[in-house]
């Protein structure tokens, strides 16, 4: 394992030191591992808090700022944050209008955010939750922990964040957040496993021509192993899975996301095929993101996330945002 780190034990802290040094618009509580918007709490504004394991950068810390999150709680690598940390973030961003937790659907995240919500409630902060579960590779059934939350977290955070910035009350922000999640679907493909600093070797082995279909964002193997093939075919597999679950049509927000180790060039090649697929289905990519947004450390691969837009969602997507990883209109 060759990584740009100082020490396996200080990876998260050292990352936060870098985030603090790089972004004066953020206030980073390194000891408690919280990335705040510098001007939090904003009186009267619903606060948005998200978090999850580290290793998915820029998620979530890269989405803290005007028009998006008020705070992010990074856990250890691939490990959800702990309740204390979330409580501290929650009370720290509470401007009196309540706080929304954007939680990706993993047992660990759900349990820790739940505990934090109870404890925050004890401290008099109203907390509501939007659960993100967009990954169609996992059946949502009695036989699973439910769908995983992946790329749609970015959409929920941006769109709910825009509504909160506009001064909407907590119930409205929750409503739109849930709507975004309900309209979003994702599917991921890995060309390699990732290597966590602690494990020091890839979480699984793939042959020179093998890939994993239906991966999540924690380096776990996917639903099936398959033969590598051209980008066009891989996109068809991903898009068919999404379309089977929620037929694609009309104006669509699309993210082609890199898993961390895949160069931008390849993501554009994937995006070209995604746009062509949508066209075939009579849908259009009216809003687009191409890049590394929700990663799995150094994993090679991509995921596609779609969201069926409404006028309201498009307007909120277009609203100004100023974060390290997403910025426009300001």
């Amino acid at each position: 394992m060759k990584k740009l780190i100082n020490d396996v034990g200080s990876v998260v802290t050292d990352t936060l030191r870098g985030v603090a040094a790089a972004h004066p618009s953020l206030r980073v509580d390194i000891e408690n591992k919280i990335i705040f918007r510098r001007d939090a709490p904003r009186p009267g504004k619903v606060g948005l808090v998200s978090g999850g394991g580290s290793g998915h950068e820029p998620l979530h810390g890269g989405y803290v700022g005007y028009g998006m999150l008020d705070a992010a709680c990074p856990g250890e690598i691939f490990t959800s944050p702990v309740p204390d940390q979330i409580v501290r973030a929650t009370t720290g961003v509470n401007g009196g209008a309540g706080v929304l937790h954007v939680v990706k659907n993993y047992t660990g995240d759900v349990l820790n955010f739940e505990m934090a919500a109870e404890l925050s409630d004890d401290e008099g902060v109203e907390v509501a939750r939007v659960l993100v579960d967009d990954d169609v590779a996992v059946r949502d059934s009695l036989y699973t922990a439910g769908r995983r939350g992946t790329g749609a977290a970015v959409f929920v955070e941006k769109i709910a964040g825009a509504l909160a910035e506009a001064g909407a009350p907590l119930a409205e922000v929750v409503r739109v957040g849930r709507e975004v999640n309900d309209r979003s679907r994702s599917f991921g493909v890995a060309l390699s496993a990732c290597t966590t600093p602690a494990a020091g070797r890839p979480t699984f082995e793939l042959g020179e021509r093998e890939i994993e279909l239906g991966i999540g964002i924690h380096g776990e193997p996917g639903r099936t192993r398959a033969a590598h093939r051209e980008a066009r075919e891989l996109v068809r597999i991903a898009m068919d899975a999404i379309d089977d679950d929620l037929p694609l049509s009309g104006e669509t927000l699309v993210m082609v996301n890199g898993m961390g180790g895949t160069p931008l060039m390849e993501l554009y090649i994937v995006f070209a095929e995604v746009a062509a697929y949508l066209k075939e289905k009579g849908a259009t990519a009216t809003r687009r993101l191409v890049g590394n947004h929700v990663t799995s450390l150094d994993m090679l691969g991509f995921s596609v996330t779609t969201c069926a837009l409404t006028n309201e969602l498009t307007r909120l997507w277009d609203a100004p945002v100023e974060t390290p990883a997403l910025r426009w209109g300001r």
């Binding site: 856990g75 490990t79 944050p81 702990v82 204390d84 993993y106 047992t107 660990g108």
Partner: peptide
């Protein structure tokens, strides 16, 4: 454990 572990196993 709840304060320090995180993940699923921490709360459980």
């Amino acid at each position: 454990l709840i304060r320090k572990v995180g993940g699923a196993s921490g709360p459980l």
